[in-house]
């Protein structure tokens, strides 16, 4: 089962259309995406990102992989390569990811506005 409840690889999805989102993302995914949206132009590292949003590698990497598969994130290798250790993987939000974040944010606001007001 995929992260959206629909296991569709980005490789097969016409990304010119809205991605199928059968259900709202998990709170952890929202936190990750929110962190990317907060600085959309910045390239982020996995460990730093996980520390910032309070998610361990065990949850962070599946989220990053799925967002990446759906072309919501783009990645590159650290440049210039540091001396003494391999280059790190860096991630940044794509236009698709930004659109998806906006869609989720909109859905969230609609969902909240439809909740009955408790007396």
């Amino acid at each position: 089962m995929g992260y959206s409840g629909v296991d569709v690889d980005a490789t097969e999805v016409d990304l010119g259309r809205p991605l199928p989102m059968a259900r709202r993302p998990s709170p952890q995914t929202r936190r990750v995406l929110t962190a990317f949206v907060a600085s959309p132009d910045a390239w982020r590292h996995g460990y730093d990102l996980g520390s910032e949003v309070g998610i361990g590698a065990g949850s962070l990497y599946p989220i990053l992989i799925r967002l990446h598969e759906r072309a919501c994130l783009e990645s590159r290798w650290e440049s210039p390569a540091p001396r003494g250790r391999p280059p790190r993987h860096e991630y940044r939000l794509t236009a698709t990811g930004a659109a998806l974040a906006r869609e989720w944010s909109h859905q969230e606001s609609v969902h909240l506005s439809m909740r009955p007001v408790e007396a």
């Binding site: 980005a10 990446h68 072309a71 783009e74 990645s75 590159r76 290798w77 210039p80």
Partner: peptide
């Protein structure tokens, strides 16, 4: 891969 190379997905076709 060479430092600085970037991809938007793990698949070439994607």
């Amino acid at each position: 891969p060479p430092a600085g190379s970037s991809s938007s997905s793990t698949s070439g076709l994607s």
